[in-house]
Design a protein around this nucleic acid. Structure first.
Lengths: 210, 210
DNA sequence: CGGTTCTTTGATGGCCATCAACGCTTGTGG
DNA sequence: CCACAAGCGTTGATGGCCATCAAAGAACCG
């Protein structure tokens, strides 16, 4: 099974792109810029706010890279509650967790107008580029695993929210979240679900962020 | 940079093993058993309880696979507190988070007599097996990313501890944690640090697990 | 304008962090 | 063997933070 994930037989649609020619590639890929034909992605049509990218339980077919906008990852828990597991911003990977299991673990929904690129078969058994793509994906996943360690575990609610805002600001390269309401793409309820806090607590905490 | 991580020039010591000949390989690697010479690992000498495997901040040089025993991952936070980030059991990967950054993010300490295997260079640019190892590592990392989604976020303390015990039991294939004290390899304080609870709360919660 | 979703503010009670103290186990040295 | 120390586990009392309920503004959209 040296075959990569995704259906390698999928025809190259008109959205097929070479990452080497994409101006935003530096946001998606690490240090060495992708060589020509090293990584082929399919730029999906723009997603409206509220559009579901993948649904929990769907068979795993590909992994997505956020190009612009933002995405929420939510999970239907055993108690029937829908809880937010994380958020993804430009350059972040969506759906890799489902690879091992064979089906997607989370539902990914666009929080705002969003564009994503679909990464299908890395064709790892054909060209040497396959290994390079795997290496890039592994590094990205490792980075995400690193970032998934909640640095706010056990912190009081106010610091937890503050750490969240800083984290979002850093990951979106946007420093202006403190001022003005509704600069954050997700709702207070979603933040609360993600942080394990009540919506009202998030509101009160953000009001005290000076 | 198609080179893998680790120093590929490191001589093959007397601990060098071929995963294809290891009886415990099924615990470490997924479905297709490793082919001969596909994965070479270095079985390290047994670690005593309390031995530090990697230290936070150390330059990243390799990734480790837990063969037996267990390991705690802890992080020195900005407030100077040492908080537990996770635990690793046989078959789990240790240290992959440090790859992207170039240095280890967490300190890994053996919770009991433990053996690990060191995975060095995948030699991805030489044989086709390099891609296969990368694929295995990526799948393992993705699985860990999946498991790192705390299913206990926002749960009350009792259910949080219950979920933790179940998780450990599942990952160690050991169902007998409920009965008898001190069957868990980590201390109550470490569990509390990991779950974001006080040590006393963990004690009280475990006493009520019937 | 009417409906919906999101945000905000207030009041109350319960859960859990904190402090304090003690028993238990293990290891070490006299 | 015993004394001592150190680490871990356990139990109790108290106060504060935060979840919950309730209700009303605010923004958005057809």
């Amino acid at each position: 099974m040296a075959k990569g994930f995704g259906s390698s037989s999928r025809a190259r649609g008109k959205f097929e792109r070479d990452c080497a020619t994409c101006a935003a590639a530096s946001r998606c890929w690490d240090d060495p810029a992708p060589a020509a034909s090293e990584i082929r992605a399919q730029r999906a049509p723009g997603l409206d706010k509220g559009t579901t990218l993948v649904t929990q339980g769907d068979p795993f077919d590909a992994v997505y890279l956020v190009a612009s906008g933002s995405v929420s990852l939510s999970e239907l828990t055993v108690d029937g509650a829908l809880s937010v597991v994380g958020f993804r911003f430009p350059g972040d990977l969506v759906g890799i967790e489902g690879w091992a299991l064979g089906r997607h673990r989370y539902t990914a929904v666009a929080l705002e107008p969003t564009t994503v690129c679909r990464i299908g078969s890395p064709s790892s058994d054909r060209r040497s580029g396959g290994g390079a793509l795997l290496q890039r994906l592994l590094k990205k996943t490792a980075r995400q695993l690193d970032a998934s360690a909640p640095s706010w575990r056990g912190l009081p609610a106010r610091e937890r929210v503050a750490a969240f805002v800083e984290d979002v600001a850093r990951r979106t390269h946007n420093e202006n979240f403190a001022r003005g309401p509704r600069r954050l793409p997700m709702t207070r309820a979603q933040i609360g679900s993600y942080l394990g806090l009540a919506e009202e607590t998030v509101v009160r905490a953000m009001a005290e962020l000076t």
